[in-house]
Design a protein around this nucleic acid. Structure first.
Lengths: 220, 220
DNA sequence: GTCTATAAAGGGATAGAC
DNA sequence: GTCTATCCCTTTATAGAC
């Protein structure tokens, strides 16, 4: 049992507990017990419960964001000088997060739940790296969807990230809603359904332009 | 100060605390203090923390679902024998929940957060009444979108309810993402953006049919 | 119905031995 | 690095006076 072995086991156990019971609901006693470690090990390795939480999230955030950038690079290579495909941009935003839940509890469940429970610690880890992704996604979407203004772009990006979060958090609901026809564990299946849904939403006419268009059609 | 006055103040204070800090994060001490009531009043009026939570949620759920049914009735009256407009169905699903947050914290924030923290108490109050709404919405969507199979209908309804939940929970994120251009308090503005987005997603081609269609187009 | 007081349990953190 | 033991605080819940 190496030095960092306990550390890893603590991270794994904490991730599970935090995602299942929320930050406040999870107790260090349960976490250390599940990790077959001592209660004091948390203090030794991480300092505090909050620092443990931050470490748990941080471990997942970087790989996810690297994968997002990789997918965007790949899509850009495919597109050459043309705007990226909306589907490719959407997939780059959502697939890495959803897939990160395949080998365990999804980060988004933890982050989402802790988001306003104790907002400060989470945002520290998540929002910094996310800013870069968001900027790049926004640039790509702006080119791909020139009919949208900045405000609408913001709304639609927000909606998109929102679906992902709730899909990751409430997998059991999907199973219930569909009478078992949809398998929440089948991430690729979910992604295959989600990408066209969101891409179509993204491509929806601008609300302002739509108003003007319908005013025009009434006149004619 | 009538008898039920304390009860109402407790419900109001509890709603705020639960939605801001989550079920576990909220303490009866803070709640009773905010309600200018005594700690023991919770036991007297509700029995336990969990029963208080259930009462808080239950108070909101019924009006929301009645409003949903009202909007569906209204849309059906407009449509006559034709299928309902997708926009109208989507709006009936989402607007009542979002608007219920106008005069206070949105139910969805509480429910969403408590959803897997302590799943049992929440589902008891929410899922029962929700089943009727879902069944009716599904029937309406099935007629309006005959190109979708049941599985896809499930996915898209799930996505739709998901966006709503996260939009309600993370209003601050919308403000941050948009550099202040989108006002999360402006519920009608958000609904006006959300309905066309989701309706377009709903109308997106069936994934299966799309595959066959693209196979056909490659042949031609 | 409302209060005080307290019970009983569980939480995070840490000192200090090994 | 790991452990035991313990401190100190907060939590929910309730008994019993008013």
């Amino acid at each position: 049992m190496t030095a960092s072995d306990t550390r890893e086991r603590l991270l794994d156990a904490a991730e599970r507990q935090f995602s299942e019971r929320g930050y406040d609901g999870a107790s260090l006693r349960e976490i250390t017990q599940a990790a077959e470690a001592n209660l004091a090990a948390v203090s030794y390795h991480f300092g505090s419960k909050e620092d443990l939480f931050v470490a748990v999230v941080a471990r997942r955030v970087q790989p996810i964001n690297l994968e997002r950038l990789r997918l965007l690079d790949q899509a850009e290579a495919r597109a050459g000088e043309r705007p990226l495909e909306v589907e490719a941009i959407v997939e780059a935003m959502i697939a890495p997060v959803l897939r990160s839940g395949a080998d365990g509890p999804c980060v988004l469940r933890m982050v989402g739940r802790a988001n306003s429970e104790s907002a400060a610690p989470t945002r520290r880890v998540v929002e910094g790296p996310m800013r870069e992704i968001r900027a790049r996604v926004r640039r790509a979407l702006r080119r791909a969807l020139p009919h949208l203004n900045e405000r609408e772009l913001s709304y639609r990006m927000h909606f998109t990230m929102g679906v992902v979060k709730s899909v990751a958090s409430d997998q059991h609901l999907l199973h219930a809603i569909s009478d078992g026809q949809c398998d929440p564990q089948d991430l690729d299946g979910t992604i295959a359904q989600l990408v066209p849904f969101l891409a179509a939403g993204m491509r929806a006419p601008s609300v302002e332009r739509k108003r003007r268009a319908s005013a025009r059609s009434r006149r004619s």
